[in-house]
Design a protein around this nucleic acid. Structure first.
Length: 595
RNA sequence: GGUCCCGUAGCUCAAUGGAUAGAGCAACUGCCUUCUAAGCAGUAGGUUACUGGUUCGACCCCAGUCGGGAUCGCCA
């Protein structure tokens, strides 16, 4: 922030002049002044005691004198300092803070850098679930954050649309479905396909059981079950391009894509480009073979190709099978390189669960060994699993929370609670439905995104639709409250545009807190960008909403008789509403005009 | 077993190596004749898993121990 910069510069030139100490020898540590002390920012003094051979008190006094010389727009910027223990609490002028009301919540300056964010990347054999929701919300929010920090962003996903798991659904559909379609059954396409994926597993297990009863070992039974052999044969036919199989595959994938599209739409996420594994799975082989000739990889007697990553404290990793076919890693190498050729990105962010930590360490190490300098600007945004109060989600045990079900549940809960509070007067039915959707999704998104991505999180369905306290709806409500006041002000013919208070009345504590927080928006975006953490954005939104509600409680706007002050407060409220809207937008949450 | 991640209030989560570890929920108490009470104010709740170490200062860094999870496929 500007004041930190100005204070640092002032003090470091003072230190170098007076004590001939280079600025490399220390650094300024700032923190927000705790509320029990007077001041706006606090400089930690301890680090200077040894360096300057002085007591904290003496340093604090010297620094204070020096800082009193700082000017902002021709007036003193630092209005007071006080030293408590080794902490120098610094008060800044209202004028300084007010100057930052403008341009506080816009995008940061363009960096000229391009970032590719990969997220979602589902399999096309079953519908999306709660785990995908965390992934999608993180990916979408991170894209917005990186864009707000000034990068050009491309959102991509790679759809895992081929492989044995896809063939399983296809086999089961062919065996059991009697031609069932989304139209004939009324089932959403991805759910229909998922139904047959489950049907496959049931049939497979029944066959295993039967084979074991016929005297096979479990291992034999698992390998010889007819339905599995059929799926494996289907995969061979798929790879051979057998017309009927390809047609079935395309048909079922279309169903799934239609289903995904509606889930993505409901979640409010989108992609600039979809990659399909069926088109990319062969990519990478050439790159690996090329690497082999350059000595980046080595080949075993059986023909398999390996990467030695022990220098990176990793393992030996296979990059090409002995039969010459690609593994997951081969494909990811090819896809990364193709993406670079296509986007020429400066960095790439993979939003993928932490069960793949090792895979991405290996991938980035291999890309580096292949000589791609952008490999070091690839990041794995690794997030933790989502647990339920009942424990882990397990598809076998049917405890998986379906994405579509969850979305409709949060919307229903929002509908119920909103009607209970009687807050839909004057809304048309369509407007009310829109509001329920905004609130329900706001609750869901905030609940998931407020948690540090890295951490495993517990998803409690009941708490996810809470409307009070540190929740999405609380922030939305704060925004709607402001909008309501502004509508009334406009109706009264008040024009408040960009009014500032007269310089001789000090800001009310609640006003000042709001002003300070509004000015903090750019630093917040920067921090969220560096940490790749929507949780930073959520924390800020909550702080800002809380500060506004305090202000709303303490400082009347429309009833304020001093019109200059009234207009300033309306300006402040309007800025807060804009800032809340921008902040919520970073995490994909809408800000209703009324609620 | 090797490697990696996590362990903070009853519960869910915060806390760039800095002051007396903060919020929300749940519990209890106040505040609607006043711009939306989905709000505000307050009470209570802690040996930051444990043991050492580094430091002027450690929830944070280091070592070890104990718990939980992930991963160690020519699966993805």
């Amino acid at each position: 922030m500007l004041h930190e910069k100005l204070i640092s510069e002032s003090l470091s030139s003072y230190i170098s002049e007076k004590y001939q100490v280079s600025s490399d020898a220390y650094q300024f540590v700032f923190q927000q002044t705790r509320k029990e002390f007077t001041g706006d920012v606090t400089l930690v003094i301890f680090g200077f005691t040894k360096l300057l051979g002085m007591s904290p008190a003496a340093i604090g006094e010297a620094f204070g004198v020096e800082l009193s010389k700082l000017q902002f727009n021709g007036k003193p910027m630092v209005t007071a300092t006080n030293l408590v223990q080794g902490f120098l609490n610094i008060s800044l002028s209202d004028a300084y803070w007010l100057a930052h009301l403008e341009s506080s919540h816009t995008h940061l300056a363009a960096t000229g850098k391009r970032t590719v964010v990969e997220y979602s990347s589902p399999n096309t054999n079953k519908p999306l679930h709660l785990g995908h929701i965390r992934n999608n919300l993180l990916g979408h929010a991170v894209s917005k954050i990186v864009a707000a920090a000034g990068d050009e962003v491309a959102k991509v996903q790679i759809v895992n649309d081929r492989g044995i798991h896809i063939c399983k659904s296809m086999v089961a559909w062919r065996r059991f479905a009697n031609g069932e379609t989304p139209e004939s059954s009324g089932l959403k396409g991805d759910h229909l396909v998922g139904k047959y994926y489950v049907a496959f597993d049931q049939a497979y297990r029944a066959e295993i059981k039967e084979l074991i009863e016929q005297g096979k070992t479990e291992e034999e039974a698992k390998a010889q079950a007819p339905i599995l052999l059929e799926a494996q044969e289907m995969l061979r036919q798929w790879e051979a391009g057998q017309t009927e199989i390809i047609a079935l595959w395309e048909q079922m994938n279309q169903w799934v894509y239609a289903g995904f599209a509606s889930t993505y739409e409901a979640l409010g996420v989108s992609f600039d480009k979809n990659y399909y594994e069926s088109k990319t799975y062969l990519l990478g082989k050439d790159k690996v073979l090329d690497g082999l000739t350059r000595g980046v990889f080595y080949q075993k007697d059986d023909g398999s190709v390996w990467a030695d990553l022990e220098a990176h404290k990793l393992d030996q990793k296979v990059v090409l099978r002995s039969d010459g076919t690609s593994v997951y890693m081969t494909q990811d190498i090819g896809t990364a390189i193709e993406r670079y050729d296509e986007w020429h990105m400066d960095s790439m962010i993979y939003v993928v669960g932490n069960e793949q930590d090792y895979h991405f360490k290996a991938l980035f190490a291999i890309l580096g060994k292949l000589g791609y300098d952008w490999a070091e600007r690839c990041f794995h945004l690794s997030y933790g699993m989502v647990d339920l109060p009942s424990g882990k989600m397990k598809s076998r045990e049917g405890t998986v929370v379906d994405a579509d079900d969850l979305i409709s549940e949060v919307v229903s809960a929002a509908r119920e609670k909103t009607m209970e509070l009687g807050k839909i007067d004057g809304l048309t039915d369509a407007e009310a439905e829109q509001l329920y959707r905004q609130i329900g999704l706001g609750a869901l998104k905030y609940f998931i995104l407020k948690v540090d991505p890295q951490k495993r999180m517990l998803f409690n369905p009941a708490e996810s639709i809470d409307l009070q306290g540190n929740t999405g709806p609380f922030i939305q409500y704060s925004h709607a409250r402001i909008k309501s006041v502004l509508r009334k002000a406009a109706a009264q013919g008040i024009s408040w545009s960009a009014a500032l208070p007269s310089s001789n009345t000090p800001l009310h504590a609640a006003e000042k807190e709001l002003v300070k927080l509004l000015g903090h928006y750019p630093a917040m975006v920067e921090e969220a960008r560096v940490k790749l953490s929507p949780a930073v954005v959520c924390a800020y939104a909550y702080e800002l909403a809380t500060a506004f509600n305090k202000f709303y409680h303490d400082c009347s706007m429309l009833n304020e008789t001093n019109t200059e002050l009234r207009d300033f407060r309306l300006t402040l409220a309007a800025k807060t509403a804009d800032c809340l809207r921008s902040t919520l937008n970073l995490v994909g949450i809408e800000a209703p005009e009324r609620m």
